[in-house]
Design a protein around this nucleic acid. Sequence first.
DNA 1: ATTACTTTTTGACATAAATCAAAAAAACAG
DNA 2: CTGTTTTTTTGATTTATGTCAAAAAGTAAT
Lengths: 186, 186
Amino acid sequence: MGLVSKIQQLVDLSPEGAHWLSGNIETFSYKKNEKFFQAGRVCNYLYYIQEGMAGGYYMSDEQEVCNWIATEDDFATAYYSFISRKPSYESIECFEACTIQAISHTVLNELYLRFPETERAGRLILEEYYSRLEERLLSIQFKTAKERYTQLCDKRPEIIRRAPLGRIATYLGMKQETLSRIRAEK
Amino acid sequence: MGLVSKIQQLVDLSPEGAHWLSGNIETFSYKKNEKFFQAGRVCNYLYYIQEGMAGGYYMSDEQEVCNWIATEDDFATAYYSFISRKPSYESIECFEACTIQAISHTVLNELYLRFPETERAGRLILEEYYSRLEERLLSIQFKTAKERYTQLCDKRPEIIRRAPLGRIATYLGMKQETLSRIRAEK
DNA sequence: ATTACTTTTTGACATAAATCAAAAAAACAG
DNA sequence: CTGTTTTTTTGATTTATGTCAAAAAGTAAT
């Protein structure tokens, strides 16, 4: 699986377009715990995880809060910064060694110009992020900590298996101690 | 102030474009407590409040939760449904008698075709919604109920003055009783 | 294998806000 | 204006989760 196929899932992309895009993809490798994007900058790449797991986090009251976790075949970008061209408040860190494919903002715009049928991609990705953010808000507002953990176990067990518990806790909107207690009950 | 000026604040709109748009705006009047959009449908209009106050709300665990409040010169749309073309989970209700201007999804798309320089409008509005949603999540997650109320008083005093307290409470992510107690302290 | 450091778990206690119930005030209808 | 309904406030109690502290387990470095 790769970034080209991922984009093909979103929009029609001709063989010619796929070929053009392939030639413009950059590939990076990162070690566990490496941060490949730092808050405060504008995010210039649409990152995609080919191998590994990564998470986005921001600082709040001097603690790191994980706000998304991505694994193979997911986008892994400070997306709002990417599209708005504003400095990002979030950083991205690898929870495991990662192989990342990326296309730059410039390349993506050129893709849109050369192959206009792809222009919806940006909007569709933003919709996905919006939808996820909304779900997160509802979850944190109306579900108990235990319900949130259970839901994550059901929907994304690979996160429970592979991500650090401290990250999972803040991702779920709870403290580490609370997560520990919930896990002790199962 | 009107919908045309509002859009002009977002994107360049030529006099010709402004004129074309003006001719395609629909105007509606609603009474206090009237719901001009119901959850379950796809939202086909970009609504704009010329006069009055309205809020969007959704049902959660059999209670109505207000998730945005708009007043004069604000958009007042189930926006995610508007752009994604998916049925909306939220309804829109007038807290006061309202005068609403609206353009349909079809008209907006035609605007983009006729005046391509306006095409960013949809994305910019979505970014604004995204940004607000994110702020809301951070606020509910990390601020106390009192802090949230105080911030609303500072930033949008017209809401405190004009919206029903029950709506303000759920908008701020707290129960009515809690809001009452906070207010009693000031 | 040992030591140092980090992460997770556990125990005790505190607290912000919810829940339940009802009183008081405000709004609405005739 | 009166009676009814709705909204807001108030009082008492409960609860989910945070906070503080330390023990236990896991990881990394040598």
